[in-house]
Design a binder for these strands. Structure first.
Length: 301
DNA sequence: AACGAAACCAACCGCGTTCAT
DNA sequence: GATGAACGCGGTTGGTTTCGT
């Protein structure tokens, strides 16, 4: 028994272990992770227990759901704003963990890196069932990782979803549909501000009132408010900032006032243009297209 | 059907921060 | 203030699943 406890178990969690962990959390709350092992309940480290709870067992998680277009857009915007502060970004996305966001981002990054680094081939493009991404892989010249980062900031692929190319147009991404964003944020705030005891959840059955996730403070975090200019994280993506230049900051403030200064204003007026096919490519830096052949559209087929 | 590549996801590790003593 | 334990976060890795050929 003692020996068993000394040996730290690693690897996938069993449902029994999950159950033990859930019982512990229901009794003591999501803390005292180390005591789980010291009490002999599990031979996992406190760290591991916490991670399991945060990423899989916590109530209200969107496990197994692909990122929606809105979530994707938010991640892109927030990543440009905060950098790789995944935990912070995750607080803006209901039901998503930092791990989710991190995985989403790195997967996206890898995909784009591959797209931009594969040398062009001389093979004819037949487009027989190939996605446009596959074609790009064959056509785009090698590219530095900086370029990848840059492009990542402005594009969204939405590859994981079934509507593979019904993606957000880059202009839409850089100049998001403001009204939509407002609505989304307000509904998000509404959810976040709803006390957990009013939300049917895990807590009611297990008897512990889980604390709300820390609510992001968009006012403090938004570098676009004049009063927050000092808080702009460095390095701040210059091109991303460029996207905002045409709009005066006063407009940000006005918009934020409309929302009681709680909206993370992206400082842009609406672009009601809906996502359409090929939006992904429309949004790439123009140089890239020097290497492109004509990409067939749906009307070509 | 088999195989390889890509995508996805869960979990670990190292390091920095916070907190109690 | 110094120290150590606990915690939280970001980066990375490795296993599994999905997809295309």
């Amino acid at each position: 028994m003692e020996r068993e406890l000394l040996e730290i178990k690693k690897g996938p969690w069993s449902s029994d272990e999950d159950e033990v962990l859930l019982r512990h959390v229901s009794k003591y709350g999501p803390r005292e992770w180390s005591s789980i092992r010291s009490k002999g309940l599990l031979s996992r480290t406190g760290k591991s227990c916490r991670l399991r709870w945060v990423n899989k067992l916590r109530p209200n998680l969107k496990t197994g759901c692909k990122f929606t277009a809105e979530e994707e857009r938010l991640v892109v915007e927030l990543q440009a704003q905060f950098g790789n502060k995944w935990a912070k970004i995750a607080t803006y996305l209901q039901g998503r963990t930092d791990n989710d966001v991190k995985n989403f981002w790195s997967s996206r990054r890898k995909r784009l890196e591959r797209m931009l680094q594969k040398p062009p081939t001389s093979k004819p493009h037949k487009n027989n069932g190939k996605t446009h991404i596959n074609q790009v892989e064959e056509m785009v010249p090698p590219c530095s990782s900086n370029q990848v980062e840059e492009i990542l900031s402005y594009s969204t692929s939405y590859m994981g979803n079934t509507q593979v190319f019904e993606m957000i147009n880059l202009p839409d991404l850089i100049k998001p549909n403001y009204q939509q964003l407002e609505n989304d944020y307000l509904s998000a705030v509404e959810v976040e501000a709803t006390p957990l005891h009013t939300v049917p959840s895990f807590e009611s059955s297990l008897g512990y009132n889980f604390p709300l996730l820390p609510e992001p403070d968009p006012l403090m975090d938004c570098p676009l408010f004049p009063e927050c200019q000092d808080l702009v994280p460095e390095p701040f993506d210059p091109i991303f900032v460029d996207g905002f230049k045409e709009k005066k900051c006063s407009e940000c403030v006005c918009s934020s006032q409309k929302l009681g200064t709680r909206l993370p204003t992206f400082g842009l007026e609406g672009n009601s243009q809906s996502a359409s096919s090929n939006g992904f490519f429309k949004d790439f830096p123009s140089e890239i297209f020097e290497y492109f052949e004509h990409i067939p559209t749906s009307s070509d087929q």
